[in-house]
Design a protein around this nucleic acid. Structure first.
Lengths: 195, 195
DNA sequence: GCCAGTCAACCAAGCAATTGCTTGGTGAAT
DNA sequence: ATTCACCAAGCAATTGCTTGGTTGACTGGC
C-alpha cells in the first residue's frame, strides 16, 4: 500500500516515465512479449535499473493497471458530480469511457483487458474494488434512464452488453479514421437510447 | 469402415489432440505463457515431439485460430441456409456466435481475441478473409431487420456495437452460473430489437 | 509363415538464446 | 559522508527448437 512516506505520492520523475513506457509497450506487444530490457531502453536505462524503482516486472504491471483504473474511475465520478439529467449523464459516461479506452496515453485499458491473467491475485483484488464502484455508477444511470423511459431494459445484462460494446471499440477504432471520439460517443449513446 | 482416401485433410489423430490441448492452454494461460512442454505434456508427449506435427509454436497457434475461425464461419452460414425470417435469423446468429465463443471446446475465439498480435502477418491475412465474410452476413441481417422495422440503425457502427457486446460476453460469462447460453441468446436478441 | 525393409510417430538429450532479477560498484548531489 | 539513481556484469532458469535414435505397425517377396 502506502509505501512512500517522505516523497508524497506522485513525483514527475523517471518512475513515471517507466510506467508510461511500460504501459505503451505492454499494449503494443503484450506483457510477456515485453522484456525489462525493452522498457529500460525506452527510457534510456540499462536492463537492471528499473528494479530500483519496482521490485519486479509484475509490480510494474500492477502499477500501470492500477493507476489507469483509478484515472478511469475518477473520470466517471467527475461526470456524476455534474448531476446532469439521465440522458446527458449516459452520453457523458460513454464519452468518458471512450476517452479512457481510446485516447493515446490511456494504454492501461487495453493492458488491463489483455493482461488481467498476468496479474497476481492480490493485484486483482485491488482492481475489483474499483471495478465494482465503476459498475454501480453505470447501473444507477441505467435505472434512471429506465425510469425516464429512455431505455427498455436496466438489468445487469443490459449494463454488461452496453459496456461490452464500448470496451470492444478498442478492437476496431482507429484514431486516424473519419470517426472522431466525440461523434462515436454521440452515435453510440443514440444507438442504445429509445427514439 | 476406415475409408480415409488420403491423409490430407482431417485425421482423428494426435495432431488434432495437440490442437485441442493447445487451444485450451492458450486460452487459459495465454500464448506466451504456454510452453511447448505444457502442450506436449497435456497429450502425453515429450517436449520435442509436437514439432513433428507442427513446424513451430506459431504454426500451432495459427492452426488453432484458423480451424476455429472456419468452424465459426460454418456455423453462421448454416444459420443463413435455413432462410429464417429476419427476427429469427438475428436470434440464431447470436446463438451461434455465443456458442462459438463460450462453449467448451471453442477455445479458439478467446485465443483469436487475445493472441491476434502473436500471429504472423500472413496468418492474419488468412483470417481477415473469413472475418470479412462473417461481417457481411451480419450486415445483411441488420439491413433486413431495419427493413422490417425491428431495429433502429443498420449502420456498420450498429454491427460493431452489437457484435462487440456479444464478443465481450467471453469476459464475464460463466457457464456454471444461472444464465444458460440459450437464455442469454434470447435476452440479448430482445435487448437489441425494438419492442 | 517368416523376415528384411520402410515409414510414421515418437523419445532422449541437449544447445543456444533469452529472460527476470541480483550484486557490487560509481558519479553526482546533498 | 551519506544517499539517490543508476550502471556493468552476470547468474540461474526457462525457452523454442534440433538432432539422432528407437519402436511398432505394416509391407512385399519368397
Amino acid at each position: 500500500m502506502a509505501q512512500r512516506t517522505s516523497p508524497a505520492a506522485e513525483e514527475p520523475n523517471r518512475r513515471a516515465e517507466l510506467v508510461r513506457a511500460a504501459g505503451r509497450l505492454f499494449r503494443e506487444q503484450g506483457y510477456d512479449a515485453t522484456t525489462i530490457r525493452d522498457i529500460a531502453a525506452a527510457v534510456g536505462m540499462r536492463s537492471g535499473s528499473p528494479f530500483y524503482h519496482f521490485k519486479s516486472k509484475q509490480d510494474l504491471l500492477k502499477t500501470v493497471v492500477l493507476e489507469g483504473m483509478h484515472a478511469a474511475l475518477a473520470a466517471i465520478e467527475a461526470v456524476l458530480a455534474q448531476r446532469l439529467p439521465p440522458r446527458e449523464t449516459f452520453h457523458a459516461l460513454i464519452r468518458a469511457h471512450l476517452d479512457t479506452i481510446l485516447v493515446s496515453g490511456g494504454d492501461f485499458a487495453p493492458v488491463l483487458l489483455h493482461e488481467w491473467r498476468s496479474l497476481s491475485p492480490e493485484s486483482r483484488a485491488e482492481i475489483v474494488a474499483s471495478k465494482d464502484r465503476y459498475e454501480k455508477i453505470w447501473q444507477k444511470t441505467l435505472t434512471d434512464l429506465k425510469r425516464a423511459n429512455l431505455i427498455a431494459d436496466d438489468s445487469s445484462l443490459a449494463r454488461l452488453l452496453i459496456i461490452g460494446s464500448i470496451n470492444w471499440t478498442a478492437q476496431w477504432y482507429r484514431p486516424d479514421g473519419k470517426l472522431s471520439i466525440d461523434k462515436l460517443a454521440k452515435r453510440t449513446a443514440n444507438f442504445f437510447l429509445l427514439s
